[in-house]
Design a protein around this nucleic acid. Structure first.
Lengths: 122, 122
DNA sequence: TTTATGATTCGATAATTATCAAATCATGGA
DNA sequence: TCCATGATTTGATAATTATCGAATCATAAA
């Protein structure tokens, strides 16, 4: 994740409806949900939801696949983890004391420790 | 961190200058930096920077203290960690496979594992 | 008190964004 | 082919946001 991607991603999340949608899909996991169900659960008008889903997708935070007449939206966990890493990059001067969040559904490798840098002269 | 706080926090970060400022302060750690140095490093006009610092502060992401004529801005790590937790809340249906990011400068307890929920019937 | 410096606030302007009714598109079934 | 359903796109409107010159505020030193 770079600055170029991070700002649109954060902007996408910085809206009540979109944040709700994103969090719902984070919880839904790889299975995902169609707009009809999201709209019903969160009480969002279909055109408005469609607009927000497009924003999240263009920001790289969501992926979409088709299943018959339904579209299925899922979280792009790689982008989500990349954003977390970007925000905490070189946290506290990179003393190695902080950890990066990693969310990988049904995977074994879940937490990576940052490479520690030599302490700065004080 | 709740939804009420998360949207303003994300909105605060969803702007190029503010994201740069925040990340610079994340790296600066508890020591922090005065606006004059931030402005110089990031090439931001003082009134504009002041506006952005206020946004970040009102969002709860920054704290400020005074040192003579200078103000010193620092990251509110608790708010930062709360935001991370909120975004990854119940990740992947809460199967316990994901971890929460925690950044605590000069602290020992750095990663907390989520409480796993019983698996849903499939 | 006067002056200098670091920082914020005011005010005006330009640009971006959220919403939803109506129309359109895409797929599957009759 | 025609119809029904799930979803998106268009278009218009209302609301919010970023920027910076000029003015103001706060602290420290002369």
């Amino acid at each position: 994740m770079e600055s170029t991607n991070a700002v649109p991603a954060l902007a996408a999340l910085a809206q009540e409806h979109r944040l709700d949608v994103f969090r719902l899909l984070v919880q839904a996991g790889l299975e995902g949900l169609p707009p009809s169900q999201i709209a019903e659960r969160l009480k969002i008008a279909p055109p408005t939801l469609s607009f927000h889903l497009a924003q999240l997708r263009h920001a790289g935070l969501l992926q979409v696949r088709r299943d018959g007449r339904s579209l299925i939206y899922t979280v792009n966990y790689e982008a989500m983890n990349g954003l977390m890493e970007f925000l905490t990059d070189n946290c506290c001067g990179g003393d190695g004391s902080c950890r990066v969040p990693v969310c990988e559904p049904r995977s074994a490798t879940l937490v990576r420790r940052r490479a520690a840098r030599p302490a700065r002269p004080s």
